[in-house]
Amino acid sequence: MTKAADLKREAKFNPDEARQMLKEFLDADVDVPETHPMYPLYMQLLAWEDHQEDLKREYAGKLGADKGITRDVARSILAVGSLDSDDDYMLVHTRQALRLFVGRGRDPEGRLSRIPGAKNVGSALRNLWLLSGQDNPYADWMLILSESEIDDLIESLSKAVADARGKIQAMGDYGIHLSVVRSKEPAKVCLGFRSPLRLPDF
């Protein structure tokens, strides 16, 4: 029999109908005798079920990949790791900004006062954020207050930057074009924490 004929026959084959016709044998869980007129239909049903099993196995083995994709290529999806990135960092150009970021620890001689750094504050806010995720209402409250303060600081800083930039740009009216100073070797500071809160760009 040709392949086309096979396909045609397969297309016409209705497993539900076949099961209905073979119900007596299937319910009794016995094979149809070779001499029985239903035997060819029974064999066709078994072949169809084997084929379906093969298809399921192949689908599972290829992790549901589309036609034409080999099993090895499809399974490479398992080797893809979770998303990650290099540490977030910030370039800091001035000592004042760097001091604000790193802070100042307790002076053993007691001459200088301690200054908390933005890095530790970021880490503290992250811890508050984690407690907030544990249904602690006080953490939520402190986080709300912090968010509000950060928004105010960012707004105030943005306004101060805009004012200062305005002065620089105003020099352009006199034909003097000034560029904002920058360090030749800015410090690269790793943030070392990941939370959705952002701190002001000092």
Binding site: L100, P116, G117, V121, L125, N127, D135, M142, S146, E149
Partner: peptide, 28 residues
């Protein structure tokens, strides 16, 4: 600009110091 920022940093760390006490951190 620096002053209010440092004040905020102080407050944020103080707040966390309070909530880091296990008896308070565990409250829901």
């Amino acid at each position: 600009q620096l002053r209010p920022m440092r004040a905020f940093f102080d407050r944020a760390l103080r707040n966390l110091n309070v909530l880091q006490v296990p008896a308070y951190a565990a409250l829901t």
